[in-house]
Write a protein that binds this DNA or RNA. Structure first.
Lengths: 221, 221
DNA sequence: AGCGCACTTATTGTATACAATTTGCTCTCG
DNA sequence: CGAGAGCAAATTGTATACAATAAGTGCGCT
């Protein structure tokens, strides 16, 4: 589908992820409609969507603003994901068909490939990673859970720090997924939940470390 | 604040909760704008909001529709609330000031009053109940958590079955809150989480029972 | 100089007209 | 009689103009 509202969403999202505006900045609907190349009406819908995903916020007087993500908030986000995706993995373990599990294995093979190279293909890694998690969430067969997780899985956070990840971190992620697949094959919801939990929690710590280094870099400049 | 978009939200919400449309029905934006008494533009914003809260859904071709809540979905909703509000209670136990705890006690006193009457005051009960849970959620000091819970706490579900609750069920709810307050005073996050968990899980079972009786009633007609 | 009040500008909110899409109907052909 | 193409009506999506509200600006007053 290619409604103006969707393209506005995509373009503004891209603009934000590319760092087109600093945290704390205020942006007008008009500027955004220039960026998106459509009128303000669909832009407003896109903004609401981005607000829901917490990529945009509003001031007390309803001005649009780019939020700044503190360490605490990111911690909390990963904690919520850990709970909810852990729950999703648990349910998925009881519901995934053998075909779907094979499919997950196929996706994860791409993930392994992307990091096996001398120069890891970050974009490909992130894409496969996203698809993997989405398929697990989908298999949980809980529309509300899916919707809630969509709010929390912030690509910006992932993307902004992907370069900070070491190759070993990425390989470990792929191995986590392998273990998750093993848990699915064993039909062991408890195992699945535990693996998903540690997977996400480690991701947070890798992220936090990369974050603090990045801040040091900034300070050095 | 009284923007047209907000009044539209309120009126449409009221319309839906009052049972103005049956699950599965499709409603046009125009009908909704008649109900709300404003033009389609703010109605569309209100619809997006109601969609987010799952009071409305869309068909595959973007028609607006009233969702029907199956037993499974309601189970899942309560399960998610149990996880998330349990987490909120845990955090709240570490953060609530003594004044805030006193405030919770005051709110819960109203709750006790509402059910102490010969003819319990359901509206007053629900209002106090909502404020109690909101204050706990707020005290968790996690904007994301607050936002996610706002999606899940469906007044319609609560409201539709409030009449099915026995006086004893309502009194038990108030007692649960008492115990939660005790956990807060003891600064015991683990206790708080456990109490919140059982509180919500019992609420689900009471609800499920009321639901099945209601279905029997329907079948009898 | 500092403070507050009117006034100008900028920004968001709403209505309306029109375009694009979907739905449902009818009429024809097999 | 049923299936399908094509048209008409209904419905959602978008742009634009205007209204309401918030932010900024400069003036006069003390």
């Amino acid at each position: 589908m290619s409604t103006a509202s969707d393209t506005a969403y995509e373009k503004i999202r891209h603009f934000l992820l590319a760092g087109g505006a600093r945290p704390g900045d205020r942006i007008t609907e008009e500027k955004l409609s220039e960026i998106a190349g459509v009128s303000r009406t669909p832009v407003r819908e896109a903004v609401r969507r981005l607000e829901r995903e917490l990529l945009l916020m509003r001031t007390k007087t309803n001005r649009i603003m780019v939020p700044d993500w503190g360490q605490d908030e990111i911690d909390e986000m990963f904690t919520l994901r850990q709970m909810l995706e852990g729950h999703a993995a648990e349910r998925a373990a009881l519901r995934l068909s053998l075909e779907q599990i094979d499919d997950l294995a196929r996706i994860n093979a791409q993930l392994h490939e992307a990091v096996a190279l001398a120069e890891p293909d970050i974009a490909s890694f992130l894409d496969a990673n996203r698809r993997f998690h989405e398929e697990v969430t989908e298999a949980a067969a809980s529309p509300r859970l899916t919707q809630v997780l969509a709010m929390l899985v912030e690509q910006p956070v992932v993307l902004r720090t992907a370069r900070g990840y070491s190759i070993e971190d990425l390989k470990q992620s792929a191995r986590d997924h392998d273990e998750l697949i093993a848990a699915f094959r064993a039909r062991d919801p408890n195992w699945a939940r535990a693996v998903m939990g540690s997977h996400l929690r480690r991701a947070f710590h890798v992220f936090a470390e990369a974050m603090s280094e990045q801040q040091l870099d900034c300070a050095a400049e």
